[in-house]
Design a protein around this nucleic acid. Structure first.
Lengths: 223, 223, 223, 223
DNA sequence: GATGAATGAGTTTTCATTCAT
DNA sequence: GATGAATGAAAACTCATTCAT
């Protein structure tokens, strides 16, 4: 009800205001991520996001302009986060085989710990990547990621542990696929295979299977 | 879906008529499949489905009860269709290695020719398989599918071409994953990898990669 | 599926047809009575009536023209039924006091055995008696009923058992009211008075109370 | 419903404004009361309520959740209103006979001045009191009402003016019945008795008749 | 006389977004 | 910067009635 600081704002309060604003922005993005992940772009409710963020609905429009732009912001942040985490793995400093194994594990763990990422990506693909297309920042991050992978493969061949001629893109897609598909389709999967695919044992088994799949795929013949 | 004619129906009554319940039902399901695949369960519009089916909206509710029940019907039919097609492959009559290769190709081709299947399954997983859970007919078809696969693996081991100890479920999931993921994520994939993943060449390349992946995965060591 | 009697109908089949038609009409009216009583005019569903009557919906329109006209037909029949039953009581042949008691009991029993009557009348009053207004047959039956009552009161005065000056209409309304209200409002009544108003004991108690109410109301002073 | 002002609200903010949640809520409830009374729960139109309330249809759902919950709110308010008014009569401070007469008059007058109450109650009974059942606030108000009545009867017996052994619930029901039935069934009644039951004279006559009915019912024998 | 598929107009409900304070 | 009341357009769903056979 009271509104302090109507005029004569000191720098201290200025800073606080900024921090609050950023905090609100962040809370909105976190809430939106959950909501979009749970219900998809179309199914997400702006009201729900506002409530979860303990923010006023008006703020969403103030900071992001529209539901769709909010989605884009969330999606971009999600992609940047995983690309960032991948860079931090510092795969270049490990032997190729170990590095690849590391990447497979990391990818699997990332999906497990960030289940929203998968659903967000599904949602974006349902919309034919309409939002990501315009994103320059994503393009840059992607290039770095792909070249890192190519690098890794090249080193492996030099080290004599990987077959030559493996396409980095195909391998990347496969590494993602065998983890991603298992998790995104775990509900229909549980019905088709009549198993709980999410018990700790099941998850461990899947990771082992995936590591085996990738290693057999890249291993130099005769090893 | 089909109505076999009791004896003695004249040709006149057999001619295509507007007032044919089964035909209307079928048109609605086909239209719904497209609409649900394109926009997901939430994003699909009943009006649009009715229009595409050249049916009155009221008919949808008459035959299916609700948008959600229509979705369930469409989803069930889609699952039954692929399970049915798999059975028709007659893999049991081929050598194990050839049979497996056949299955990998078939799965890929099926996804390519039935793009709705993938989006439908994604949508159902977004809803935690709520609709499929209650479906007994799907449970039965699934069991047949899984046991066929187990059979195939067992035969391959006996023939000496496959490694022993491969889990049929994990293999199934992997076969699906490497095709499904590529296709469902082709839009974001195109951005990340800066390639058109859907040209004939790209598709052929992916199929070859997938065949290689699976064969290396199951091949008996030393072969 | 088979349709016999396509041509050359004998008189016997003619009669049967007529009887069937009447039977269908009757089944529709009975089904409609239940449906209208349960849901009111607006809430009743034509589909439901058709199904309950094991008749085709088209038949309802064939015999009655519209839902509203069907309602009118049902309502008229209901009024005629109670007026008819009252006449059959042959109150004129009993001593006045006994006759009045008889009427109070009869009214209560009729409402109990014909619960649809009450709801039908409520529905008609919600619609400001729009349908009954045009009904000449009801006007005739009503007059007979009112004059019977006046007669009864007059006799009672002559016999010295009833007070003079009692208005027949007011008495009639009161006799109906104390039974009708109890039954029509039994659901909210059960909540307000925290009792089950429909147990055999409760019903008997109410009838006794009502008889007492009416008798004290008409009894000649000093008796 | 009312909002008492925290201290220091200036007159300016107090002026009638469109954006007043409580006022809108109230307008909706008033409009709904009329509409439900006129057409019943099923026949009432949400559009109509919104228009009459000069509110956006969306607001109805915002404040009440659904048409049915709005009905419940209206019904509860109606019951609370009459129970409240009864308590204000302060019957405990009058001699029993006078108090009873007062209650009969009050009940009649209340029904006359609040015709919506009757139709609302009819509607609720058509729905088997589904909405009221869950209402705790109604249960509390009802108990107060019933005990007030029992009190009144006990006092009357002590004063020697009422017969002992009269059941308070039965008497309550009868007092309500003889007024309620007359009014709710005034349309069919007008046809059956070929009179206008709503002229001032007719109303006065009915009230007198009802007072007589109740007084003869409770009066100690011999008085 | 009978059937049941089809329809159009309407009804409730939903939701992203804007407006007044 | 923040609040929450209000809105319009659209969506799901309903139902009495008619049409083709």
């Amino acid at each position: 009800m009271f509104r302090t600081n109507d005029q004569g704002r000191s720098e201290v309060t200025e800073k606080r205001k900024t921090r609050d604003a950023d905090a609100t922005r962040l809370r909105i993005m976190q809430a939106a991520k959950k909501e979009f992940a749970k219900h998809g772009l179309g199914g997400a409710r702006v009201d729900e996001i506002a409530e979860r963020a303990k923010a006023n609905k008006r703020m969403i429009y103030h900071y992001f302009g529209s539901k769709e732009k909010l989605f884009k912001a969330v999606l971009e942040a999600a992609y940047l986060d995983i690309r960032n985490a991948e860079q931090k793995l510092d795969l270049d400093s490990m032997p190729a085989e170990k590095a690849l194994e590391h990447l497979v594990r990391f990818t699997w763990d990332y999906y497990l710990k960030n289940p929203e990422f998968i659903t967000l990506v599904n949602s974006e693909n349902l919309h034919r990547a309409r939002h990501l297309k315009k994103s320059e920042v994503i393009a840059v991050a992607s290039r770095k990621f792909v070249s890192m992978m190519q690098n890794l493969l090249d080193r492996g061949v030099q080290e004599g542990v990987f077959r030559p001629g493996i396409d980095a893109t195909q391998l990347n897609i496969t590494i993602a696929a065998i983890g991603y598909y298992y998790l995104t389709n775990r509900f229909t999967g549980a019905i088709v295979f009549e198993r709980d695919l999410m018990t700790p044992d099941a998850l461990e088994e899947r990771l082992a299977f995936n590591l085996d799949t990738i290693m057999r795929l890249v291993r130099a013949d005769g090893l």
